[in-house]
Amino acid sequence: MYGAVAAVKDLSLTVRRGEFLTILGPSGSGKTTALMLLAGFVPPTKGDIVIAGRSVAAVPAYRRDQGIVFQSYALFPHLTVRRNLEFPLEMRGIKAAERVTQVDRMLERVHLGDFGDRMPSQLSGGQQQRVALARALIADPPILLLDEPLGALDRNLREQMQVELKNLHKEFGKTTICVTHDQEEALTLSDRIVVMRTGRIEQTDTPEALYDRPTTRFVATFLGEANIIENPDFKVESNAAPPPGTVAMIRPERICVTGPAAPKRVDADQRQSVQGAVSDMIYAGPQRKYHVRVGSSVLIVREHVASGQQIFRPGDDVRLDWLRSDVRFVTT
């Protein structure tokens, strides 16, 4: 609770040993508070937190034996990289000779073998992130907590570090709980994703299942783009009957766009086709996105750019078609 406001409500979550779980949500969804509860920085007003069968709700953060990486890295600015990594070992009473061995091994593992004597201010953002991860891992904690770990990096470096994080997780096998608002990061890194909204869990599942089979409109639109087809001028065909209180949804990349007179596809009997007109075309390097008006609805279509591909301009008439099996139904 923050005053009269409950930042997290009725949160019930089981994390499996060794999995990479991401808590995903927009600002104000309660994801960071959930992580602070797990870390021990915020006490729960009710309920319990159990790790390996032991209640830790009343255990202070420094006694929970967890590795934590913050978005700001929180490196000691007055200590060298080597001393930053030695600190948690020293706090655990590891002898000096063994500390040197463990630090050398960890620096090599995160590709910083030649950077041990540098100060944090002499490192790039990606290098500082590696030091922060190494410091969290070096004491061999059973749980690793990541708070927006890649949020301070530019796009290219963030993608490189996503690969590095996946490799580190595979190598060390740590139970990892990550908080982020970055959907692509969550999809790339996670074994499971918890989508939060206004302090509650909206849906929990694997990345593939969440993206392909969202249960609510919020999850469908927050985790990627989605065409929510409400009150269309055409009947949406599907292989399944729509459950009560739901609307049809289809992902933009599942829709194909062609000229109105183009030959039908070989699986046309499994598809629905509609006629429309392009209202906008957005070129984004490897992808091209169309906004197509179909009656009173505007559908988004996303296709990979390929040589020899027909390009449609605003005002062009087009035909859209999609597999009826790709239509999903979400609650509003």
Rank of each mutant, 00 (worst) to 15 (best):
P242M: 06
G151V: 13
T331G: 14
P314Q: 11
R109S: 13
R319Q: 12
I193M: 10
R135L: 13
A7E: 06
D212V: 06
F218H: 10
R271M: 09
M281Q: 14
G53M: 10
P88D: 04
A7F: 03
K235A: 13
D104F: 02
R64D: 07
R83K: 15
G28A: 08
R92K: 14
R328S: 08
L112R: 08
V194D: 07
A240Y: 05
I49P: 05
R313D: 14
Y2M: 07
R158E: 10
K31Y: 05
A284Y: 02
L150V: 10
N227M: 02
R265A: 13
R217F: 01
P142F: 03
Q270D: 01
A226T: 14
D154V: 09
Q102A: 13
L144H: 07
V56K: 05
G126A: 08
V56E: 12
T33C: 12
A6Y: 11
H111D: 14
L146W: 02
G47H: 11
R54A: 13
S12A: 09
P232F: 05
V318L: 06
K235L: 04
I177K: 12
L21E: 08
V236H: 04
E303A: 13
E98H: 09
R271P: 00
M36G: 00
R16I: 04
T204R: 09
D233H: 06
Y211H: 13
E225A: 11
C178E: 08
Q122M: 14
E86K: 06
E86W: 03
T258R: 07
F172N: 09
L168R: 06
P141I: 11
R265N: 00
R213H: 15
L145P: 03
V81P: 04
Q272V: 01
D114L: 09
R54N: 07
L150R: 12
L123P: 02
D140F: 07
R155N: 08
T175V: 08
L168Y: 07
T331F: 11
Q203K: 06
M281I: 15
Y73P: 01
V103S: 14
E108D: 14
Q122R: 13
E19V: 01
A220E: 06
E90I: 12
T331K: 15
L299G: 14
R288S: 00
G276Y: 03
A4W: 03
V59K: 12
